[in-house]
């Protein structure tokens, strides 16, 4: 589904990703962990198409397409979803209007008719229930005045609406209380099928108690320096990142 080969990216003159290799297959859950500044969020931003970062080398294939050549909206329409670490507040754009526009643009891309108003509202209702998001939130402007937990729930709600094949959850657990974390994790688990895949980007092991990964990768200084099964997360939780840093100090 996703094949990343030797991906390098920089912001201004600073190289952040220095040769990432990663393959994700349908049905898999990958966790990418690593200390602050290792390039975790950059990787997700580059995959989603944020043009603040410049890709200098490497390629990414997503369901057979050259991902890096697509504008962000087409990456989304092809089935990629990024749950933002810091979802943006957009006063004046209603959640309903935003989601209707997004869902219908996805449908148009696939050559499908736009959803009727009633079908769309039904879909909203169903997905809201699925991810346990408060109706009040979806009646407001996009993320405006939402708490940290509400914003993350809203990301998962959007994910449910857009039904991506690959979801990248960037630090979705940071700043969440245990109840919000459970709701967010439940949402992700409910949306999981054998045809879609998830990349969890996280700093802590906590989220992985709720969403169990098939693979854990450690990102350090722009490279994946260690890959193993879920037990690696526990090891990291126990020992921290220092032993990795020591092992791979340039």
């Amino acid at each position: 589904m996703l094949v990343i080969k030797d991906l390098h990216a920089k912001i201004e003159d600073k190289e952040i990703l220095r040769g990432i290799n990663l393959t994700v297959k349908p049905g898999e859950i990958h966790a990418i962990m690593g200390p602050n500044g290792s390039g975790k969020s950059t990787l997700s931003a580059v995959l989603a198409g944020n043009d603040k970062f410049e890709v200098t080398e490497g390629e990414v294939s997503f369901n057979g397409k050259k991902l890096l050549e697509l504008p962000p909206e087409d990456r989304s329409r092809e089935g990629l979803f990024l749950s933002f670490q810091y979802p943006v507040e957009i006063p004046g754009v209603s959640m309903v209007n935003f989601m209707r526009t997004a869902v219908n643009e996805h449908r148009k891309y696939k050559g499908e008719e736009a959803l009727s108003a009633s079908d769309f509202l039904k879909k909203m209702r169903d997905k809201k229930k699925l991810v346990e998001i408060d109706s009040k939130l979806t009646n407001r402007s996009v993320n405006e005045g939402f708490s940290g937990g509400e914003k993350k729930k809203n990301e998962i709600f959007q994910m449910a609406m857009l039904e991506p094949t690959l979801s990248i959850l960037d630090e979705t657990d940071s700043g969440l209380d245990i109840d919000a974390l459970r709701i967010v994790a439940n949402g992700v688990n409910k949306l999981k099928t054998e045809n879609n895949a998830t990349i969890l980007i996280t700093h802590y092991q906590r989220l992985l108690d709720y969403i169990v990964p098939d693979y854990v990768h450690v990102l350090y200084k722009g490279r994946i320096v260690k890959s193993a099964g879920k037990e690696l997360a526990l090891e990291l939780e126990e020992k921290g990142y220092d032993w990795i840093k020591k092992e791979f100090e340039d």
């Binding site: 989603a48 198409g49 643009e105």
Partner: peptide
């Protein structure tokens, strides 16, 4: 970028904003 990352085209995102 947030709007576009959800599949909204650049032109439509401009109008929304």
């Amino acid at each position: 970028f947030y709007l576009r990352s959800r599949g909204v085209s650049e032109a439509e995102a401009r109008i929304l904003l």
